[in-house]
């Protein structure tokens, strides 16, 4: 099976999407570079390509000192970054401060992301997560255990609660968003629980082992199985 056949979008769909966006110079198929056209034919949507170009331009703008360029990136990822921080901190003012810090840090380090638009969101998520965890540690405040310390039963129940709008829905089309959710639903609840605890609570894997009364090896295995499985299931699934 070649790359084209693996494509998320059949050629007719791509052509229709190109036609729908034909009036906008940034999404016109013929106006794209040959590399961008090739990416589109390999499954990258015109919207992805448009966002990629917009991000690249914004990063270059930041490098040139254009404040509005940071605003552009905030418009794209601000809600997602804030939502993640809020889930960690469970405190809106702190979450906004962490979000602001993350974007200001991007302003300072934009040069390192020049030409790597796909790295911008992972970079922001990493920074805001670290800032949020730091805030928790400084204030000796932990998020309510009910929020992050889900029992496998609770996690199982939440799987069925699929209609809620998630941070992922703000970034991906429904097809890819559903693909991610399907991949997560295939994971045993205890594995996903370990990932969420580690990510949102800032607990180390040793602390999680103590909290769940499991061995450290078991917790590490669960985390590795979960991420390894997700990595395989979500191969080629990018935000942009």
């Amino acid at each position: 099976m070649n790359a084209f056949m693996r494509s998320t979008y059949p050629l007719c769909t791509i052509l229709k999407m190109v036609a729908d966006h034909g009036g906008e110079p940034r999404t016109s198929f013929s106006s794209l570079t040959r590399k961008a056209q090739a990416r589109m034919l390999m499954g990258v949507s015109p919207m992805d390509e448009s966002n990629r170009l917009k991000l690249s331009a914004a990063i270059d703008g930041i490098h040139s000192g254009e404040k509005e360029a940071l605003g552009t990136i905030y418009d794209m990822y601000g809600k997602v970054v804030y939502s993640i921080s809020l889930k960690i901190l469970n405190h809106s003012a702190d979450a906004e401060e962490a979000t602001q810090d993350a974007f200001l840090s991007l302003w300072k380090h934009a040069e390192s992301l020049s030409g790597k638009p796909a790295k911008v969101l992972p970079w922001l998520l990493r920074v805001v997560r670290n800032r949020s965890i730091d805030t928790i540690r400084k204030s000796s405040r932990r998020p309510p255990s009910s929020q992050v310390m889900k029992t496998p039963e609770v996690a199982e129940l939440e799987k069925d609660h699929a209609e809620k709008s998630t941070a992922l829905d703000a970034l991906l089309d429904s097809e890819r968003s559903d693909r991610v959710k399907r991949a997560m639903n295939q994971l045993p609840p205890d594995q996903m629980t370990v990932i969420e605890l580690a990510y949102f609570s800032g607990f180390s894997q040793s602390e999680i082992a103590r909290e769940l009364n499991e061995s450290l090896g078991t917790i590490k295995s669960r985390a590795r199985y979960a991420l390894s499985r997700l990595r395989k299931e979500l191969e080629g699934c990018h935000v942009i």
Binding site: I84, T99, Q100, L104, L125, E158, T166, I195, L227
Partner: peptide
């Protein structure tokens, strides 16, 4: 990337304050 996708999928989308963008800039 995989962890980010999973984390975002398990995070409810919440709107920050409307002036956060201006404060940021």
């Amino acid at each position: 990337r995989s962890m980010g996708l999973a984390i975002m999928a398990s995070t409810d989308l919440v709107e920050p304050s409307a002036d956060l963008r201006d404060r940021l800039l």
